[in-house]
Design a protein around this nucleic acid. Structure first.
Length: 662
RNA sequence: GGGCGCGUAGCUCAAACGGAUAGAGCACCGGAUUUCUAAUCCGGUGGUUGCAGGUUCGAUUCCUGCCGCGCCUACCA
């Protein structure tokens, strides 16, 4: 409701200003929450209007206040020095809207959105860095869906690249295993862990003797022949590891709709189609000499082609070597960026080709995840061909992402390029202390750093399943001591919900551009600004209703509950402490919208924490069930019901559920 | 060298679009409830927002320079 009121207010202000100051070029009306509740619920700084309107800020504010007229849902406006217009919400109006759970639909863009996230190389176990990606991506999907958008979730699978080849080398050259032996291993429970260790060994093996690197290039070459034994082995490994990744993410309630694989992008000739168009449009140029002789290159994103001195722009067939990004190697093979360009043309329906599809993984809720195939099933959902895309990919790849966007522009697809968002975030690294705890020996230089980058190649990192297991054990320990009357199964179930809440909250509380220096102590914490803190608030709210034998979900449908009666508690003396809760509860969709427009889910975590914090203080200060004034008791219960509802919603968007007890 | 980003309390982080007294959590110190379960609450200590200029009514936020740190800058992905 807060969002709805804000939009209504903004509209009326603009209307008023246009009418009373015709012709003046007006700056954007900024509406922000004031720093304190006493000041009001919306604040409009009017300083920016002083110059264009040739009037003092206070005069403008007063003119608006006096002239804008009544607005439904707004109680009053006050002018505050040195130049703010503070607006107070009609609390009775808001109380009734919240009690009725009204959220008027807002105008939003149409069209399907595609979110790509996770995209882990299928050659080893997922680690905490991948968790951040998947949790950010999954939460963003939930945000979009909460806002009413239709979303497809894709997880790109690079099953033909160097990383998979390296593990194939490990099995065939170091362990000298046959395909049958590998298949047997691949069906073991945590095959991805096996690959994790093997991958690290392969890197060492390469380092021991440069000659060993020949095995890599030979293997890479063999994988390209789809009918070879090597390709079959790669397929076994990458498919088994991929399945493990889906299982790991499934533990966190993260699902996908479609898994496009690089092998199909190659074998269904997506690249050939893209290559033709890129050459025709002049996006790619052939280098006849220099360091990139024999390659097809593109201008690196972010570089400009101005010639010194004249200031004239060169024709694009002259790119300095530094600014060249190799798309097609001199041996004719295409690199990752090229395949990504083809894939993104497909995403926007610009390629003129499509995958074949088959079912790959079924979730407990019966939802199917599809995978690309050479020959697929006849009936399948329609993927791709979307209006907007978001790619959840870490910041290290922003140059590659921008190169893909520039390629789309070069092809004349500006509309697509404008709707291409690289959802960029920073990596998860380990604190030196954490690295030491894991048994890694650190150089003195490393010890002095604030964080150390995770390295799959070195096997240096915290595996996703291990972290989740540890969180569950730790939560179970707490649950055991608090709820000995429950069965072990029930306690495991509660502990699992808490563990997921802690993990998902932990990954979302940091803003995207902040490097997370991972530390077990912090990640395993269930107190303070954590997921369990928010879950606990909901459990407390629920227990009040349980004891009162009232269903909080249908509380407001009871005819004896009247939101009109609440007004007296929201507007009298000392009402601000209650109003703060109602106001915060009204902001969920406002926050969701803010998260989407800034691609920053951290605001949602803040919102959950704020609601929980306000509730816990309220809970402590006001005994509810023992309240003797019946109308006051109803009001307090209503407050609990509203905050509980919004907190549950907010947590659900973060992918966090609330256990029955804690 | 070039590109991108970061630097805020002892530690980890907030403060979207420039706005009112820069806020949390952890840690530390001191308190609270024989209650709807303390995974809670209340209070306290803790800041020259890296440094120096500039822009303006107003700068943690924008601009310039410097210092420090990270990532990218492969015919890897």
């Amino acid at each position: 409701m807060y969002r709805y009121l804000e939009q209504r207010l903004a509209g009326r202000l603009l209307e008023f200003l246009k009418l009373h100051y015709p012709g003046a070029s007006l700056p954007k009306v900024v509406i922000e929450p004031p720093p304190k509740v006493e000041l009001g619920d919306f604040a409009i700084p009017v300083f920016p209007f002083a110059k264009p309107l040739r009037a003092a800020p206070l005069k403008i504010a007063e003119a608006i206040r006096a002239g804008v007229g009544p607005i439904e849902g707004i109680a009053e406006m006050q002018v505050a020095p040195p130049g703010y217009l503070n607006v107070k919400i009609d609390r009775a109006w808001m109380a009734s809207a919240l009690a009725a759970d009204q959220e008027p639909p807002t105008s939003m863009a149409a069209g399907k959105i595609l979110v790509e996230h996770t995209s882990i190389n299928p050659n080893k176990a997922a680690h905490i860095g991948h968790l951040r990606n998947a949790i950010l991506g999954d939460t963003f999907v939930r945000l979009l869906r909460y806002a009413g958008r239709e979303v497809d979730i894709q997880n790109y699978i690079d099953n033909t690249g160097v990383q998979v080849a390296d593990v194939v080398v490990g099995f065939t050259h170091i362990e000298k295993k046959s395909r049958v032996e590998i298949e047997a291993l691949a069906s073991q429970p945590r095959f991805d862990y096996y690959c994790w260790d093997l991958y690290a060994r392969v890197s060492q093996w390469y380092a021991q003797d440069k000659e060993n690197l020949k095995a890599r290039s030979q293997t890479l070459h063999n994988i390209e022949d789809a009918n070879s034994e090597t390709a079959a082995i790669a397929e076994v490994i990458s498919t088994a590891v991929l399945r493990r990744h889906l299982e790991t993410m499934d533990r966190l309630d993260i699902e996908y709709d479609f898994l496009p694989r690089e092998s199909e992008i190659l074998h269904l000739h997506f690249w050939d189609a893209a290559f033709t168009k890129l050459k025709e449009a002049g996006v790619l140029t052939y280098e006849a000499q220099g360091k990139n002789k024999g390659c097809w290159v593109m201008r690196r994103a972010g570089t400009t082609s101005t010639t010194e001195g004249t200031g004239e722009t060169e024709q694009s067939d002259q790119i300095s070597e530094e600014d060249q990004k190799v798309i097609v190697r001199s041996n004719g093979t295409v690199g990752y960026v090229g395949k990504d360009i083809a894939y993104h043309m497909w995403k926007f329906g610009l390629l003129g080709r499509d995958f074949a599809y088959r079912k790959f993984y079924r979730y407990p809720n019966q939802h199917d995840c599809w995978i690309s195939a050479m020959q697929g099933e006849k009936d399948h959902p329609h993927f791709g061909d979307v209006a907007e895309i978001y790619n959840v990919i870490d910041a290290r790849q922003s140059e590659a992402q921008n190169t893909v966007i520039e390629a789309l522009r070069g092809l004349g697809h500006n509309e697509a390029a404008d709707h291409y968002t690289h959802f960029s975030y920073e990596m998860v690294a380990l604190t030196p202390r954490c690295a030491a705890e894991l048994g890694y020996t650190l150089s003195d230089e490393d010890k002095s750093r604030s964080y150390i980058e995770v390295s799959g190649r070195k096997g240096f990192g915290v595996k996703a399943d291990d972290l989740l297991d540890q969180l569950i054990v730790s939560a179970k320990h707490e649950v055991d001591s608090r709820h000995p009357q429950l069965t072990d199964g029930e306690r495991v179930s509660v502990a699992t919900q808490i563990a997921i809440g802690a993990l998902r909250y932990f990954m979302l509380k940091f803003t995207k551009q902040s490097v997370i220096a991972f530390d077990f102590k912090e990640a395993l914490s269930f107190e303070g600004e954590t997921g369990p803190y928010a879950q606990y608030a909901v459990v407390r709210a629920a227990s009040i209703f349980k004891k009162a034998a009232i269903d909080p979900d249908t509380f407001f449908q009871d005819s004896s509950v009247s939101s009109v009666a609440f007004t007296k508690f929201l507007t009298g003396d000392n009402a601000d402490e209650f109003w703060e809760l109602w106001l915060a509860a009204s902001k969920t969709s406002y926050i969701v919208n803010q998260c989407i427009s800034t691609t920053e889910p951290a605001y949602l975590a803040k919102h959950a924490f704020q609601l929980a914090q306000l509730f816990n203080a309220f809970y402590h200060r006001h005994p509810i069930l023992s309240e003797t004034d019946e109308s006051r008791k109803q009001f307090l219960l209503a407050t609990v019901a509203i905050v509980r509802r919004e907190l549950i919603r907010t947590l659900a968007v973060m992918g966090i559920t609330v256990p029955p007890v804690m």
